[in-house]
């Protein structure tokens, strides 16, 4: 499984990170080095092993159905780069 420039471009697109053409080969090289290094996990016999679901032995915590938050629009919006009429504002989305 080697990563080529096209794969880096696709992954960067999925991750929404702009990558210039000249950045692709070094990134591909770095990713390949890391992926090559983690290949050693293939030596491990995992056939009978369940994946870890949590580092703690406990049960899922639950909350009651009570309204305990909200009504803080100023706090929600105060760090936003652009707002208008109480909304977040983003470049137009075409559906």
């Amino acid at each position: 499984m080697t990563v080529d420039n096209e794969t880096v471009r696709r992954i960067a697109r999925l991750a929404r990170i702009a990558v210039k053409d000249e950045e692709l080969p070094p990134l591909a090289g770095e990713l390949n080095a890391i992926l090559g290094w983690v290949e050693q996990l293939n030596e491990v016999d995992i056939a009978q092993v369940a994946p870890m679901t949590s580092a703690v032995q406990t049960t899922l915590k639950q909350r009651d159905d009570a309204v305990t938050a909200g009504h803080i629009p100023d706090d929600i919006l105060k760090n936003a780069p652009e707002t208008e009429l109480g909304f977040f504002v983003v470049p137009k989305v075409v559906e």
Binding site: R13, A15, R16, A18, E82, F88, V90, P91, K92, V93
Partner: peptide, 23 residues
């Protein structure tokens, strides 16, 4: 992602804004 807090870099559309901001 440049929407709710922190840095936002402009882009010609939403996806470019995301990509430029995160780059």
């Amino acid at each position: 992602d440049g929407v709710k807090y922190g840095l936002r870099m402009p882009g010609k559309d939403l996806i470019e804004m995301y990509e430029n901001t995160r780059a």
